[in-house]
Structure formats: C-alpha cells, structure tokens
C-alpha cells in the first residue's frame, strides 16, 4: 500500500489496524472489509471516501462497537474497542469518547422528544449530573453549534433541515467526545446549509480539538475540509495521505478515476479516454 503513514509524531486518537469484517449469514456471508488501516490524531479531520457499498459505514459501526469484527484492532484513546464485551462495551459507549452523527437528521432525532431532551439524552444515560447542570450543558452545546437555546423546547419537525443537522451535532458534542464520526453529514443539505455545516465541523476541531472521521462519497466536501484522506474501494484502503498530495498526485487508478469523474464548475472532469484507461487499469488490478 503506498503512502501509509498515520502521522507517527502526534499521539493517535483512533488507530484502526488490519480491520476485517464479514456481514451476512451462511452462503450469503461476505467479507466487506479486508485489512483496513485508518488513523485519526487529536484535532485532525480525516476523510474516508468510497462508493456505495465500499464499506464506509461498516468501518464507522466497527469503531463504535456496533458490529462483530473478524480480526484486527481498533484502538480509541487507550482502549481496544474490539476486545470489549458486555458491561465493558456498554460502559465504553456511555462514556461517549466517540460520537456518531448520522446522515439524515430527521430520522436520527426522535420526533417525540423536544430538542433539549434529545440533546440531553446522552448525559442522562451517563448519569451523575444535576438537572440544572444538564440544562446548562445542553444550552452550551446548542450555542456551540449555532442553534439558539430558545429553540430547545421545540420538536425536530419544527426545525429546518440545517438546524436539525446542527442539533444532531450538538447531541454528539454535549458528551465532549474526542472523536466525531460524521457519516455523510452534508449529503442531505442544500447549498447554504452545506457551507455552514462544513464551517461548523472545522470550528469544532479548532475550538474543541476534536478529531473527526469524515465519511463521504462526495469528493468535493472531502477535498474542502480534510487534512488527510483514505480512499476505500471494495473493502480495502487503496490509498491514503495528506489531502493536497492525494488529490494532486494520486497513485491508485481508482483514486484517479474518482478525481477524474468529479464534476467541477470548470467542466474539469477528465476526458472520457482518460477515464476509460483508468477503468481498464482498475479491472487489470482486480483480475491480476
């Protein structure tokens, strides 16, 4: 694998090594991740890019201990998440070191709960706080993401899509996580909200030093916001490195194809002959 150097100088927050996962049962069981290595340092934004079915979400679920893994290790802070079971796993999740922000904020927020209750849920599960403290932290988290605490008594249905996505982030940030896993956080947003959401994620990194694993199929968002990028193709990381280097001097044909296929305002998608060549190279790698 070319160019794999999870910044050795900085202490790693997340280190996924040789992660292998299979899903399904019996004859339909299939390996969806094959020896994946990904690392995120504190305060670093790492992009994970790949097409539908490449295994992006399975990596996220594995980090949170939501999927049984076949092999490999997932170190988060000082803990190997992969070895946790039973109450240890539950205690780890309750502590909330890693938090997940889903793509669709309408479905990830309980429509019956007020914004305040949704945001406070994690704090209540963790326990040990007075009511007033909970209220204060909820207000602080909402302010952090740019939602007026005055909206705390509303329900998700009364908020715009952009506001709901912010609330979903407040719900994650209220637990003061060290790692934020954002799974397609801007795919469902319109142009204005997309810019604001990407600004917000950068702000959280700057203000709170939170590490971010930014999962997306959209090369544009990944290019704009990440420090490093890992390219996932059919369950394998085929290439990773600093964003600028990866985008301007990519080695793997799949990365090049991705870049050459991205529509740009300059009409800059690579010409078709180039893409056909890359597809052939890719097919040759797969068969050979």
């Amino acid at each position: 694998m070319p160019d794999t150097q999870p910044a050795s100088e900085t202490p790693t927050l997340l280190a996924v090594a040789d992660l292998t996962v299979s899903l399904g049962h019996g004859r339909r069981r299939a390996q969806v991740l094959r020896g994946v290595d990904v690392a995120v340092a504190p305060g670093e934004i790492v992009g994970l890019i790949g097409e539908t079915g490449s295994g992006k979400t399975t990596i996220a679920r594995s980090i949170l201990g939501l999927t049984h893994i076949d092999g490999g290790s997932i170190r988060l802070g000082g803990t190997d998440v992969a070895t946790l079971t039973g109450w240890r796993l539950r205690a780890f999740r309750r502590a909330g070191i890693a938090q997940y922000v889903f793509q669709d904020p309408l479905r990830s927020l309980d429509p019956q709960l007020t914004i305040a209750d949704s945001v406070a849920e994690g704090l209540r599960v963790r326990g040990g706080l007075e009511r007033a403290d909970v209220r204060e932290r909820v207000a602080a988290a909402l302010t952090l993401v740019g939602v007026s605490p005055a909206l705390a008594t509303r329900h998700p249905g009364e908020l715009s899509g952009g506001q709901r996505q912010r609330v979903a982030i407040a719900r994650a940030m209220v637990l003061e996580p060290e790692l934020l896993i954002c799974d397609e956080p801007v795919s469902a947003l319109d142009a204005a909200n997309r810019i604001q959401m990407l600004d917000l994620i950068q702000h959280l990194r700057d203000a709170r030093g939170v590490g971010v694993l930014f999962i997306s199929h959209d090369l544009g968002s990944v290019a704009g916001i990440t420090d490093r990028v890992a390219v996932l193709y059919r369950g394998r990381i085929v290439e990773q490195g600093p964003t600028a280097a990866l985008l301007t001097a990519s080695q793997h044909p799949y990365t090049r194809l991705l870049i050459g296929s991205a529509p740009t305002l300059t009409g800059g998608a690579a010409d078709r002959t180039r893409r056909t060549e890359l597809r052939e190279q890719l097919a040759a790698i797969e068969t050979g």
Partner: peptide, 17 residues
Amino acid sequence: VENHARYGIERYTSELA
C-alpha cells in the same frame, strides 16, 4: 459557485491543470 470554490475539488483540479 462559492460552495465549489470553498468546499470543492476545484482548487486542486486547477493545480492539476
């Protein structure tokens, strides 16, 4: 347009060009 200029692949593709 700003969406692409700020959070898009454009700045890298122009470097490429």
